[in-house]
């Protein structure tokens, strides 16, 4: 199978701390990592390759240092990488990002499957996966928690829904997004790490992928960020002190007053 994964470099959420005084996020010194959901995508792609043969290509759009996540992905078993990096892409929203990634994926030649993580943990939009599918004109299945079977140009998957899951058959090529339940991403391998170390990544520019200027970056983005702010701290915080019995009793009274009990 010829499989592509879309990945993103994000700040490591487990390292992000909140400044207690201001209530804002401290981003300084926060390491950049592979978006955790994308690790599931890479793992699933590598497993499919191990089972069915073929190759795995990883694509990312971002600043030059985003190449680091591609190295991580190679250490996990991806064969080829593509870094799409150009100042012209800055400020892209999900529309422009989907368009740009779509162009990059088209350069990879015929694909059987594109896998994306459910969402990136910095933006949490979950819109790029379906956007890429539309740009490629491919069928799409979201929130895949298991790939049951691939055969005869079709793939059978389990799609997570609110109260269970659905078994869905989709014709290939297709685009899917995957959730945490699908697998446990592997550690990088030593050989993969050594391969990644010597990897030279040549970024592709807007021109290289043949992007139209009015469809990329800030200019190509229908949405505009008007304001970014820290959520207002909650007021009227209340503490219940005392012995456990007393705390429990007062909590119960509170809930009664709120008509919850």
């Amino acid at each position: 199978m010829n499989i592509a994964v879309c990945v993103k470099q994000v700040p490591d959420a487990s390292e992000v701390k909140i400044d207690k005084a201001t209530g804002t996020m401290v981003r300084e010194g926060v390491p950049a990592v592979l978006n955790p959901f994308d690790a599931y995508a890479v793992e699933e792609a590598v497993r499919l390759k191990e089972k069915h043969g073929g190759k795995v290509s990883a694509v990312t759009m971002g600043p030059p240092q985003a190449g680091e996540v591609l190295k991580h992905v190679v250490a996990m078993g991806a064969d080829d990488v593509m870094l799409i990096s150009d100042r012209a892409f800055a400020g892209a929203d999900t529309w422009a990002t989907s368009y740009t990634l779509g162009l990059g994926l088209k350069k990879l030649g015929p694909l059987d499957l594109v896998i994306c993580g459910k969402q990136a943990i910095d933006g949490d939009t979950a819109q790029v996966g379906p956007g890429v599918a539309e740009n490629l004109g491919l069928p799409f299945v979201a929130y895949v928690r298991r790939i049951v079977d691939v055969s005869g140009g079709k793939m059978r998957v389990e799609r997570l829904i609110e109260d269970g899951y659905e078994v869905v058959e989709v014709s290939l090529p297709a685009v899917i997004t995957v959730v945490k339940e699908i697998n446990a991403p592997r550690m990088p391998s030593l050989k993969g790490k050594m391969k990644a170390k010597s990897l030279e990544i040549k970024p592709l520019s807007a021109q290289d992928i043949g992007a139209e200027a009015e469809k990329i970056g800030l200019a190509g983005s229908p949405t505009k960020v008007m304001k970014v702010f820290s959520p207002p701290p909650k007021g009227n915080r209340e503490k219940i002190d005392g012995a456990p019995e007393e705390q429990a009793a007062r909590l119960a009274e509170k809930l009664k007053a709120l008509k919850i009990i």
Binding site: P11, V16, M25, G123, D124, P222, V225, V228, P231
Partner: peptide, 16 residues
């Protein structure tokens, strides 16, 4: 909310 709710963003779509 973005970034796990640590920042909020107000977004508009003025031209489309």
């Amino acid at each position: 909310p973005a970034f796990g709710g640590n920042i909020m963003a107000t977004i508009a779509c003025p031209n489309n």
